[in-house]
C-alpha cells in the first residue's frame, strides 16, 4: 500500500504567511515549519518580509530525477 506522500509526482510546494519580526526570523520559522510538518529539510523558494511577517513559497522534493518513483510501480496502481 503506497502512502499519499509516495503518490506525489515530484514535489510539495507550501505557500503561507508567517507572522514574524524580520526576514531572518521568517527564514528560521520557515525551516522549522518543515520540521514540524515532518517534511525534514525544505527549501525556501521565495520569501518576502513586509513588516508583519513573511510571505513564503517552500518546496520539498519527494522524488528527484533518477530516483525510483513509487507511484509508477504496477502493484501500487490506484
Amino acid at each position: 500500500m503506497t502512502t499519499a506522500m509516495e503518490r506525489v509526482m515530484d514535489a510539495i510546494d507550501i505557500e503561507t504567511y508567517l507572522v514574524c519580526n524580520d526576514a531572518n526570523e521568517g527564514k528560521k520559522l520557515a525551516l522549522q515549519l518543515g520540521q514540524e510538518m515532518n517534511l525534514g529539510e525544505i527549501d525556501i523558494m521565495y520569501q518576502e518580509f513586509d513588516g508583519y511577517g513573511v510571505r513564503l513559497r517552500l518546496r520539498k522534493y519527494i522524488y528527484k530525477p533518477g530516483t525510483m518513483y513509487k507511484y509508477l510501480t504496477p502493484e501500487e496502481k490506484a
Binding site: M9, D43, M45, R59, Y61
Partner: peptide, 14 residues
C-alpha cells in the same frame, strides 16, 4: 512558475 528557481528540477504543479 518555478523557472527562476534554480536549486531543483521543475515540478508538475508549476
Amino acid at each position: 512558475t518555478d523557472e527562476a528557481y534554480s536549486r531543483g528540477p521543475i515540478c508538475i504543479t508549476s
